[in-house]
Write a protein that binds this DNA or RNA. Structure first.
Lengths: 189, 189
DNA sequence: TAAAAACGTTGACATAGGACAAGCTTTTTC
DNA sequence: GAAAAAGCTTGTCCTATGTCAACGTTTTTA
């Protein structure tokens, strides 16, 4: 149950078994269904999710009804409505498991308790933030001024499994192109 | 010389005068010219810059020669090629002062020394990362699926001084539209 | 397992906005 | 302070990609 999480932590910092168990004790298992919503648009996010199995999607819907997906967390990754989790404002986005999933959940209170109490866990959080920031920058550079074909090539290059794992519709909403265009591009390789 | 920096720090954490002076002692003043490049494309970023006066731009140029600006730091803000600063890979972007500027510079070594030595400074760094992350997410949502007019309205809403402070060309490269389009949109309000 | 719903693909059409160029204005340089 | 360079605006033209619709396929539901 906790192997993946332990691997995530021990890959990123030195920690003894006792502390590891202590940290893990704050994460509660949770089963979710396909398309289950974990955080709604108006809600304030109080939980951080680690994906043991399945997949989490973070997305929003604008006033015209257009969906934009901003992040997918697969097995072994963390995901949540982080801006809301951080500053406790309404999320203005959704957190959803797009497949039947098995998660490990920690409350915000416990999470920040660990961050401030256990320096090694503070480092983990810093690493999450640093990686999140770098990923976002790459995405900005990777998408801006690129045409649809270049975006698709970019995602194949940077996240090879992505197109195989998520639906056309969701992939398109991540890439910022229409499903038709994505479909046409894929048919031409 | 250090007032703005001290304000930045004391606005974000509790700290005594001695520690404040200790922190500031690592920041060295630096004068730059208009359009001076501080970090080049292939370089590994070793410095963090605080803007006392003037403006820093972070941008890249892709193989087709198209510029994309990803961040501007104005008076009282921090800016650098953060992904490179963090992971010590080539920047693949430029750091530039777009006006004659007055900066306070800290080396990466000193910066991380402060982060790990002074818990309050660790908090500052965490706040920088959290804010950077949140800003990047807003930008992704704010730009994806928006047409040119909506992007311009978005920037006016979210960074009212932006269009007044930077050239059309740079603003356009930030918004991901052509200078002509930006010009046309501005003429229609 | 049958009906309904969601999804993917493809064609026809419409359009936002990019490219390019010309002319004007502002800024820089020497 | 004159010449050169850079930047801004605006016109014309063109193309990439969005929209919409039709159809076939897969998935979900009951």
């Amino acid at each position: 149950m906790y192997e993946l999480l332990q691997k995530y932590i021990s890959n990123r910092t030195q920690i003894n078994d006792e502390q590891m168990d202590f940290i893990c004790s704050f994460f509660k298992p949770m089963q979710t269904k396909r398309n289950e919503i974990l955080v709604r648009y108006e809600e304030i996010c109080q939980q951080y999710y680690f994906v043991n199995k399945g997949c989490i999607r973070i997305f929003t819907i604008n006033k015209e009804g257009i969906e934009t997906s901003r992040f997918f967390a697969f097995e072994g990754g963390f995901g949540t409505a982080l801006p809301s989790f951080i500053d406790q404002q309404p999320a203005y986005e959704y957190v959803q498991t797009i497949e039947k999933s098995e998660l490990l959940v920690i409350s915000r209170t416990d999470f920040y308790y660990l961050v401030t109490t256990i320096p090694e866990f503070g480092l983990i959080y810093r690493a999450i933030l640093e990686l999140g920031f770098i990923t976002a920058q790459k995405r900005i550079y990777g998408f801006q001024g690129f045409d649809a074909l270049e975006k698709v090539k970019w995602i194949i290059e940077n996240q090879p499994h992505f197109l195989l794992r998520v639906s056309n519709k969701m992939a398109a909403s991540y890439l910022g192109i229409s499903p038709s265009t994505l479909s046409r591009i894929k048919s031409k390789l």
